[in-house]
Nucleic acid binder design. Structure first.
Length: 204
DNA sequence: ACGGGGATCGGCT
DNA sequence: GCCGATCCCCGTA
């Protein structure tokens, strides 16, 4: 069962934390590939200079201004990144999915990624989109419909620790701990920075 | 029409 | 750490 719209219609920090351990599923031509989400980042509607919506709505970020539970997919260099849109329409927040632990369709994902190492298949937002064949064609896709691309609750109950730290690859608002990971997962895009070990701050 | 930059990745030093 | 690939999008004119 896909997660319902109510799951997404909450603040992005809550959604980012609760997405950990859920299953991201891609179906194509009767074949399923999927993975457990192990790393996310929240992008806030207000006061977050790193958020794509910070300077208002454009054609690129329009999905973030739409209803919750839709995909926001954007291209960067030769890669794609998948976000889930959070909060009500008009409140432009989202959660970036940064890493998955591969689950179903491992052989197919290995072929798409051109690697045999399972820990590198879904490690990174561009990499997981390559593994699951997610492209800009999925921008604004309704993730609650349970077709082609969706998120579902994990099959069984599981316990894990959540850790947080600064977001990857952003210079603005680097002090905010808006990156969330399943502690100790071998599938993370990068190790979590220890407290006090963030990006060097310019001295004066 | 043009120029610059980016929520990345992988390879190299 | 640094750099290049590679391309879409955005701001400016």
């Amino acid at each position: 069962m896909p997660l319902p719209i109510e799951f997404y219609d909450r603040d992005p920090v809550t959604v980012a934390r609760e997405l950990l351990g859920t299953k991201l599923v891609r179906e194509r031509g009767g074949r399923v590939t999927s993975g457990i989400i192990v790393e996310t980042e929240a992008y806030l509607a207000r006061g977050d200079a790193a958020c794509h919506a910070f300077r208002g709505q454009t054609r690129r970020n329009a999905a973030m201004f739409g209803p919750p539970g839709r995909a926001y997919v954007y291209a960067i260099h030769a890669h794609h990144c998948l976000n889930v849109v959070t909060e009500a329409a008009g409140v432009p927040s989202a959660v970036l999915v940064r890493a998955i632990a591969p689950l179903e369709g491992l052989a197919l994902m290995k072929r798409r990624r051109r690697t045999r190492d399972p820990t590198r298949i879904g490690a990174g937002p561009g990499n997981l989109c390559q593994a699951l064949l997610i492209t800009r064609a999925h921008n604004e896709w309704d993730l609650t419909a349970g077709q082609t691309l969706w998120v579902s609750a994990p099959d069984g109950a599981q316990r894990f620790a959540i850790a947080c730290g600064p977001r990857i690859g952003v210079t603005a608002a680097h002090d905010l701990p808006l990156r969330f990971v399943v502690k100790g997962s071998p599938h993370l895009s990068k190790p979590l920075l220890a407290a006090g070990r963030g990006r060097r701050v310019k001295k004066r």
